[in-house]
């Protein structure tokens, strides 16, 4: 119990003192997870749109694979990305292993199926009449897609929130491709693992609390935008 209370006190102290170490780790966490989410949205929404509106043989299997991908274990992604980026791996020449870029890549791969599958579901749940009605009002194919995305904006925001939540909380992939190097690739989750393994529970609890507060604040911003969108 004392450990927990001490952890809470330490967290408050670190936050109030604007501890440089904590600030650095937090900033990198935001940069890595934020960039990964944006990449997943930029790729996932068009991909989801394409899958929602372009029937092709075997689409059901692709959909099932995407839905499975929503529960993709981060360690598996970490392993695959690490193997690809390893110095002797196919993309080793790029020298990306143990860099924030490698972590962004791994997290984007984790977030992509989530954004794609949820975007696809968001578009497919729209009233099918809406598609015909918009065409009947003279919408071009591009206008049609944009209007349908607008109509499903609440669920698209939900997809974004889910993707961000998944990547900011994962540890396996970041650890494997980032290496948890101080001042270079250490993020809140990997730092928490490290402090726990060192027996610094107060620091680990403090970092966990910061992670939770951060995840809550970002999600609060996204939810606020989403609910504003609900009012238009």
């Amino acid at each position: 119990m004392d450990i927990i209370l001490e952890g809470g006190r330490e967290a408050i102290r670190l936050l109030l003192n604007a501890d440089p170490y904590v600030l650095e780790v937090t900033a990198l966490t935001l940069r890595v997870s934020g960039t990964a989410t944006i990449i997943a949205v930029v790729l996932g929404v068009p991909l989801g749109t394409l899958l929602a509106f372009s029937p092709f043989p075997g689409r059901r299997y692709v959909m099932a694979a995407l839905n499975t991908g929503m529960g993709l274990p981060p360690v598996v992604v970490g392993l695959v990305v690490a193997l690809m980026l390893w110095r002797s791996g196919p993309l080793g020449a790029l020298g990306l292993i143990y860099t924030p870029t490698a972590m962004i890549l791994a997290q984007a791969i984790i977030a992509l199926p989530i954004v794609t599958a949820l975007s696809m579901a968001a578009l497919q749940q729209l009233d099918p009449q809406l598609h015909w009605q918009l065409l009947g009002l003279g919408a071009s194919p591009v206008q049609l897609v944009l209007l349908l995305l607008w109509e499903s904006r609440l669920l698209l925001m939900a997809a974004m929130i889910a993707a961000f939540g998944a990547v900011i909380s994962e540890v396996g992939a970041s650890l494997m491709v980032g290496g948890n190097i101080a001042h270079q690739t250490r993020v809140l989750t990997t730092a928490t693992v490290l402090e726990t393994s060192r027996g610094n529970f107060d620091r680990a609890i403090a970092l966990s609390l910061i992670l939770l507060i951060l995840a809550y604040l970002i999600t609060l911003v996204l939810t606020t935008v989403q609910q504003r969108a609900r009012r238009w």
């Binding site: 009233d127 009449q129 809406l130 015909w132 009605q133 009947g136 009002l137 607008w150 109509e151 238009w232």
Partner: peptide, 21 residues
């Protein structure tokens, strides 16, 4: 057909409206 659809208007049943004013 694309040009034609800009010269006609359709009201479906029930008429779907967008979540706008």
């Amino acid at each position: 057909a694309r040009v034609y659809r800009r010269r006609v208007a359709v009201v479906l049943h029930p008429p779907p409206l967008l979540d706008l004013s």
